[in-house]
Nucleic acid binder design. Structure first.
Length: 369
DNA sequence: CACACGTGGCG
DNA sequence: TCGCCAAGTGT
């Protein structure tokens, strides 16, 4: 059991472990508010390893807040392509402009000002305040929740309100004043490397204070929240080829994949074949009458709450059709050469499809024909 | 407060 | 193949 007189020893053990085992990461060098901010947003719901390459590319292209504020939306979206949860980058872009306008371009150091920026919630505000500005505020993410659910043997779903309040208070009580930067990162690093889903208790620097470890039920903590079942949908999309070019359109400014470019398509309705879906969607969305020119592939793609089977087809315009679309589901369109597809920001499933086109032997003939 | 929001890795 | 999930936020 973790008593208040153990708090200092707990923190000491944890901090010693962190000093020896922390991973060297690009945002752990200078701890500038800008770099801490970008890394925190990038790492939300994202694997550390994937975050590193995106972070380095971002810093290379946009080295400071002013550069972000000056960049256009296309640029920041392209830098985020493939990371997911794209509202993060839109909020980040807005926040950079707010910082320039309202904070003279300097990242704000007060917790309430940090928290007020778009895209920054309780966790990220505390993370930036502590890691960049060394304020004594504990941050609580899924790692901290998991660690403390085990240390304190919380036997109900940790996401419950009372549990969250308890976890937050415990994290704050454990935090040694003046060492918030190291302590908060140490708690998260412990959760990532040792107190992970499959716990490695033999390597844990704080197991002597861990209730679940004493009880031998670490694997039963934290108690997960109930989950909704994952649903499955079929989607069909078409690569429309005409006079050496491929048709793409730009999605609306709101909703999923806002501002992304895509091959048109839509959900396969009950009783409908994917072939028919594509014909219907191309007529509804662009008023294009199309004919099929071959099935390309089927792409399986998973999302948080549903799985998609994406049926992909080559299409041609019916002879005599004007290549000028009447857009009903998009804000813009392009007829692009194959090689230009890399310049546009596509959802991951469509990016996969675009990559497959590179090796499809039918495409050159269609482009010529 | 439940739900939407992306993606790729892993067992 | 498939469910779970990885440094959450906005509505």
């Amino acid at each position: 059991m973790l008593h208040s007189h153990d708090h200092a020893a707990f923190a000491d053990s944890l901090l010693l472990w962190f000093s020896q085992h922390q991973r060297p990461l690009p945002w752990r060098r200078d701890y500038t508010p800008y770099q801490v901010w970008i890394s925190e947003i990038m790492l939300q719901q994202t694997q550390m390893e994937r975050g590193v390459e995106y972070f380095l590319r971002w810093m290379d292209r946009l080295p400071d807040i002013a550069a972000v504020a000056d960049a256009d939306e296309e640029t920041v979206l392209k830098l985020w392509e493939g990371l997911g949860y794209y509202s993060r980058v839109r909020n980040l872009h807005r926040a950079a402009r707010i910082i320039v306008r309202e904070h003279a371009g300097e990242f704000p150091g007060r917790l309430e000002h940090i928290r007020a920026l778009p895209g920054i919630g309780d966790y990220t505000a505390a993370a930036i305040a502590s890691i960049a500005f060394r304020q004594d505020v504990a941050c609580v993410d899924a790692n901290v929740e998991r660690v403390l659910a085990r240390v304190c043997d919380i036997d109900t779903p940790v996401k419950q309100k009372e549990n969250m309040a308890f976890v937050r208070a415990t994290a704050q009580a454990l935090l040694p004043p003046g060492k918030a930067r190291e302590f908060n990162q140490a708690m998260m690093e412990l959760g990532a490397l040792v107190c992970s889903k499959k716990a490695r208790c033999e390597d844990c620097p704080v197991r002597r204070w861990c209730e679940a470890h004493h009880l031998g039920i670490v694997h039963e903590r934290p108690v997960p929240a109930a989950r909704k079942p994952v649903s499955h949908i079929d989607v069909a999309t078409g690569v429309l080829v005409h006079q050496g070019r491929i048709f793409i359109q730009k999605r609306p400014d709101h909703g999923v994949w806002a501002g992304f470019w895509e091959f048109p398509g839509g959900c396969v309705e009950p009783g409908e074949t994917p072939e028919r879906t594509v014909e219907r969607e191309f007529m509804e969305e662009m008023e294009f009458p199309v004919e099929h020119a071959g099935k390309i592939t089927v792409i399986h793609h998973g999302y948080t709450t549903y799985r998609v089977t994406l049926h992909c087809f080559f299409l041609r315009l019916r002879s005599g059709t004007s290549p000028a679309p009447v857009l009903h589901a998009a804000t813009d369109h392009r007829w692009v050469r194959f090689g230009e597809l890399t310049d546009y920001t596509l959802p991951a499933g469509h990016r996969k499809l675009a990559d497959m086109l590179a090796t499809d032997l039918r495409l050159p003939a269609l482009l010529d024909g």
